[in-house]
Design a binder for these strands. Sequence first.
DNA 1: AAGTGGTCTAGACCACTAG
DNA 2: TAGTGGTCTAGACCACTTC
Lengths: 257, 257
Amino acid sequence: MSGSRYGEIAEALRRSILEGEYPVGALLPSESDLAARWGASRGTVRQAVGLLASEGLIGSRQGARRVVLRQERRHSFAQLTSFAQWAQAMGCEVSSRILTRTTRRAGAEEASRLGVARDSEVLYVLRLRRLDGEPVLVERTAYTDWVAPAVRDLPDDCVSIMDSIAENAGIVAHYGEHLIDAVAAGSEDARLLGVRRGSPLLRQRYLTYTAAGRPIEWTDDRYLPGSVAFAVSNSAAASPLERHAGPSVTPHPVRAP
Amino acid sequence: MSGSRYGEIAEALRRSILEGEYPVGALLPSESDLAARWGASRGTVRQAVGLLASEGLIGSRQGARRVVLRQERRHSFAQLTSFAQWAQAMGCEVSSRILTRTTRRAGAEEASRLGVARDSEVLYVLRLRRLDGEPVLVERTAYTDWVAPAVRDLPDDCVSIMDSIAENAGIVAHYGEHLIDAVAAGSEDARLLGVRRGSPLLRQRYLTYTAAGRPIEWTDDRYLPGSVAFAVSNSAAASPLERHAGPSVTPHPVRAP
DNA sequence: AAGTGGTCTAGACCACTAG
DNA sequence: TAGTGGTCTAGACCACTTC
């Protein structure tokens, strides 16, 4: 994408917006203006502005110039699958520690999510993750049998398991399916995060799988509220009854009170 | 969109997927196949499959056929701004009751979010909303002064305020900005939802604004966990380091335990 | 080597917004 | 009425997957 013409145009526009050349509410140049200015076709320009729209930076309506909605960097939601990548991009110091690593037969939930047999062996990993030294996340992951060997030998303080198995074993998550809700802290959660049992946690469960559709892991992440929230932008088509524009989602840092 | 060629093609493909003609893991016809079959250009076909990709139904990689990822209806995240629309689409019976309606000077939070002066008058509405008769959501909304008159005279059991003010006053939400996290139930929340004080709630705060960028409302929604979750699909580009594909987000019903 | 999706071009017409 | 974005076409070349 960064090697593409439209990615280049998008990046330039993005920088202009973030630097304030086009403040919130300002109108972007027209498509034909941009096309002429960049020596590109209108289609290529539309790919570029479509990218920014999907990030929630700009909005559009037929007949009117595009408008700047936000002056704020947004990291791709794809990084949601990598806490480490996200945290580093946000400028936070992230550290992790694997507390337990056990191989057991898959439970009903994991077997169903991972699409493996009930009696197949699965690697369970419990991790505590910190942001700027503060514990904020308890992570419980089940890795399918074919991924387990790549995870088994990683050091306990491995910052990003996803990055490591991508590099070492060529296992790359291409798709993800996430479920976000709230749960009460269990006793283990409470002890690790330093809160009372029953206190609210933001839960993000997700399944990742390869480009070929093979499940990699099923994870249950529990965040201390106030440390992160999920931010979502959406934009409707002009007609109130026919909405379809793609939203943009990112984990969002919460400033301490 | 439904009046467009690509919307038509997308809808047909969507139906085929949901009806199982292309089960999960199946390969879609190639772009040129589809173009020939529909008598459309390749560009139009790409718009159609792009729509399905943004809904998380299909995935793609350069060089390989598109693959079906999910066989499951997904409603547009745009409906996240309308609880009523979403619930009805899910086949749930939804009812709402406005408990209080007060006009006060804006607090610091609301003034900042709505972009109005600290001393401007804002309409605060407290609503309890039910799904199939069960209370699941406490909603606290602040409407800007210019929207307030359209809301003031709505009946207490109005099912969808958004739909009503769109119809009556032509006020349509075009953009939305959402923040999702978890909070402990306050005493009012606890009383209304029938849970203990301090128990976990899923919170969704959002600002909606018009096509012209004028803020309409700032809302704090608190869901009973187990009633809804947010579902997110994401898809990465082929390169693990250059991800940009748009995610698809929807509220997601949770079946009772 | 053949097939496929990703990118790009240079046109065209229409629906909508704004002055 | 002029300008703008939304849609559509018919080509082209390249990178990648698959066999």
